[in-house]
Nucleic acid binder design. Structure first.
Lengths: 333, 333
DNA sequence: CTGAAAGCGCTAACAT
DNA sequence: ATGTTAGCGCTTTCAG
């Protein structure tokens, strides 16, 4: 492990001259600077970021906190966030809470102790009360992919207009002529999607009966199980709105397994637009979330906050949009 | 930011007494220890890991280097590795090289500067020459999911018997009665799978003709494109072996799109057994890699290396196994 | 333009 | 049992 001090000795100069030469900060005679740089290369010098972090009180690292990696939605976000912050010389550490709030606290404590510069916290990965505590301690935090009515005012966040997303799903199904529609939703996390959906149905004069609303927990399996229940009803829905793609995927499996056709017998619409959705059989109609946009806004908001940009928007709402593929059609006549 | 020094002042003791009380290392009067602990809690003390790392010359952090997160195979590995090392109080930082060797070097330099304690490097994420350089510098490294003939001897690695995996795929297809089988493979990364496959075919007296071997790059899209080409041949194969599940997935899409049936007209077998494979239509027959096992072995090997366990196995080969689902069947008569 | 010195917060001998 | 001291490697005044 060669340090600036080693270089200084060999070069016959002071420690700080080496530091200046290496970082290009102070002012150093061009000749000696070249000599030092040359030496650094020869001796295989590597700056010690641990030491630098300690003395500068920052780590150029942000944390991305998410509830799981099993849902491909999150890896997609990770890629996007990482690509952006890397351009600003920040590193990303991802922190997987496994939907476990206690574990989340534990891990967060570790991150704070490591002097992570800022945090992007994805929805359902942490309890809001904990987050508020962290914010009070002065940690730069931006919430991402939370329901916008869920967080306290004044907290930086970029989220999706989930209410609108629910409306879009309903609109699409209504336009196709569906009147008997079931919903699979992960309450309370996805409450807004449900509300938006219901509002649109109500406006069309077709309130959603409670027995047509099934609970899921955002996984494939839960979508599958919920649909099984739905299909046991005496009167079947002609369409199913699953509040995320993975559950829609599970719903599709249950429907097909029962020998029914998608979309001829039952239409299915999801929400997310993860990569595989385009390749299901049939390809999934879904309300897409602009993931790259989400990641970009969150990253930039956080970076701004870290660097003390007081005059940035504190929050931002991105619009979902409909992607029509082949899992939805007119109801059977 | 309250430090041990702050606590020391308030408690009216020395810095190191506080340190001892907090870490439980030295020997401290039980009464004063309780007082200090109490104070630490009240004052909201958080150990500063940056400082600790600097003084201890270690960070309790390992890096998991992988080529992408788009292939769900990797998130699955991440979850497994992370779960294991967390139990040993290590943190994982994932490093995504995006299949870009130059970027990989850049990021690796950063990680080294951060004093990451050890590295798990997944196949195709880095150039072997670079890795050898790092190992010479004394960095604890274990290779994971590389072709075992690919790495220099003496390098710690846990990999899959990919040759055997190729054989298993061929065996299965041969047993079903297939004689005209195409292969989609990402050379050179997947060379061993191909060789194993070919060896088995040869043993059965049915060498694989070159025009039945298409190149892919491990993505869904490449599997799709390769299959398009295959299906343009005058004489169609009755089965396709794709050297990973994502390509098999693409192959399936191409076949179905052409109006052919899987498996009645063309059987498809993949390799990996990622989570979604069980839910494709039809569910994908595949040669499964024991991902949890892979992650566990790699993590433990690395941890052993970090802690100077000289007497550990330097490498380990795990066995793949066949998972028969519904994408393979007898060839059409 | 250069170097000495203090400090970041913690650990680890070594005295007391 | 407790305190003193010297680092860890780097940054950052501030004199020379």
């Amino acid at each position: 492990m060669v340090t600036i001090y080693d270089i200084a000795k060999v070069a016959g100069v002071g420690k700080s001259t080496v530091a200046n030469a290496l970082t290009g900060k102070g002012t150093v005679n061009e000749a000696t600077r070249q000599r030092i740089l040359q030496l650094a290369r020869e001796m295989g010098y590597r700056p010690n970021l641990v030491a630098r972090n300690l003395s500068q009180h920052k780590t150029l690292t942000i944390a991305l906190i998410l509830p799981t990696l099993v849902n491909p939605f999150y890896p997609e976000i990770v890629e996007a966030v990482e690509n952006i912050v890397r351009q600003h010389d920040y590193q990303t550490v991802i922190c997987n809470t496994h939907y476990d709030f206690a574990l989340a606290r534990e891990q967060m404590d570790r991150l704070i102790s490591r002097w992570i510069d800022g945090y992007i916290i994805m929805g359902t990965s942490m309890e809001l009360n904990d987050i508020i505590r962290y914010i009070k301690q002065g940690l730069p935090i931006v919430l991402c992919d939370w329901q916008e009515n869920e967080s306290a005012p004044g907290i930086a966040q970029v989220s999706v207009d989930f209410y609108r997303a629910g409306q879009i799903a309903a609109e699409h199904l209504l336009e196709l002529g569906h009147r008997s529609i079931a919903v699979i939703v992960d309450k309370p996390w996805q409450a807004l999607r449900l509300e938006g959906f219901q509002s649109m149905m109500l406006a069309a004069g077709i309130p959603v009966p409670v027995e047509m609303i099934e609970a899921g927990n955002s996984t494939f399996e839960s979508g599958y199980a919920a649909t099984k229940k739905l299909l046991a009803h005496p009167v079947l829905p002609t369409a199913i709105f699953a509040a995320n793609d993975l559950m829609a995927f599970g719903a599709m499996e249950a429907v097909l397994e029962k020998g029914l056709r998608v979309p001829q017998d039952i239409s299915i619409i999801g929400l997310d637009d993860i990569a595989i959705s385009a390749h299901l059989r049939p390809p999934l109609t879904t309300v897409a979330l602009p993931k790259t946009r989400l990641a970009k806004e969150a990253a930039e908001l956080l970076l701004g906050q870290i660097n003390g940009n007081k005059d940035m928007q504190v929050s931002c709402l991105v619009e979902p949009y409909l992607v029509v593929r082949q899992s939805t059609a007119h109801p059977p006549t």
